[in-house]
Amino acid sequence: MISDHHFGHKQIIDYERRPFGSSEEMTETMIERWNAVVGKEDKVFHLGDFSFLNQEKTSEILSRLHGYKVLIMGNHDRGRSRKWWLEAGFQEVSEHGLIYSGFFFLTHEPMYMNKQMPYVNIHGHIHGQKYESSQYINVSVEHWDYTPVAFEQLKAMVVPNEEQ
C-alpha cells in the first residue's frame, strides 16, 4: 500500500521537502523503490494522487511498475474518469474507499472515525502529517521512504500477534 506519489508534480518537492533535485529524479527513485519490494504478482493498493502527467506519460510509468495495481482515486485524480485511469494502466479503480480484510478502511483522505468504530483507516492525502491515533495509518510516500509498505506490516501495527 502506498499513496501520494504525485508523479510529474515538480512543486511537491518543495511543498513536502522531498529529497530530490528534480521531478525526473523523484520519478526514477520512486519507480526503483516500488520495484525493489513489489513482485510481478503482488497486488498494490495506491491510495490516490498518483500522477499529474498526461495519459501517455502516466501509462509509461505504470507499465514500469511491478504488480497488479489498484487505484483508490485521490482529490488530484478525480479530475479524470475511472476509464482514463484504467486505460492508463491500473487494473482496478475505485472512486471511493473500500473495506479490506474486514477491518481496514482504505481511502485517500482520512475519514472521521469515532472510537467506537471497528475500523482502522489506511489513508494518504496529508503527506508528512500524522494523526496520533491507532485508528489511522498514513501511507503517504513521505512516511515510508517512497516505498510501498506490505499490508502485513501495517496490520501488525494495530493487531497484536496473538489476534492475527
Rank of each mutant, 00 (worst) to 15 (best):
D4F: 01
H5P: 01
H6T: 01
F7W: 06
F7K: 03
H9K: 06
H9N: 05
K10C: 07
K10N: 11
K10R: 09
I12Y: 03
D14T: 09
D14F: 09
R17C: 11
R17N: 14
P19W: 06
P19A: 04
F20E: 05
F20V: 08
E24H: 13
E25L: 04
M26F: 00
M26W: 00
T27G: 07
T27I: 07
T27A: 08
T29R: 06
M30K: 09
I31W: 02
E32H: 11
R33W: 03
N35D: 12
A36G: 09
A36L: 08
G39L: 00
E41W: 14
E41V: 12
D42F: 08
K43F: 10
K43Q: 12
H46A: 05
L47Y: 03
G48K: 00
G48T: 02
F50V: 08
F50W: 09
S51T: 12
F52R: 09
E56I: 14
K57L: 14
E60A: 10
I61G: 01
I61E: 00
I61W: 02
Y68T: 13
K69M: 12
V70M: 10
L71C: 01
M73S: 06
M73A: 08
M73V: 08
M73I: 07
G74P: 03
N75H: 01
N75R: 01
N75V: 01
R78Q: 12
R78K: 13
R78M: 14
G79A: 15
R80F: 08
R80D: 07
W84S: 03
W85G: 02
A88R: 05
A88K: 06
F90K: 03
Q91G: 10
S94D: 14
S94E: 13
E95V: 13
G97Q: 05
G97Y: 04
Y100H: 07
G102H: 09
G102I: 07
L106I: 06
L106S: 05
H108S: 04
M111H: 15
Y112H: 14
Q116D: 15
Q116A: 11
P118Q: 01
Y119E: 08
I122W: 00
I122T: 00
G124Q: 00
G124C: 02
H125M: 02
H127I: 06
Q129S: 15
K130V: 11
K130T: 10
Y131T: 10
S133Q: 07
S134K: 14
Q135D: 09
Y136F: 11
Y136Q: 12
N138G: 08
V139L: 04
S140C: 11
V141G: 03
E142S: 05
H143V: 03
T147N: 07
T147F: 06
T147Q: 06
P148E: 01
V149R: 04
V149I: 15
F151L: 11
F151V: 09
Q153H: 15
L154N: 03
K155H: 15
K155M: 12
A156Q: 10
V158R: 12
V159L: 13
N161L: 14
N161A: 14
E162G: 09
E162H: 15
E163L: 15
Q164C: 13
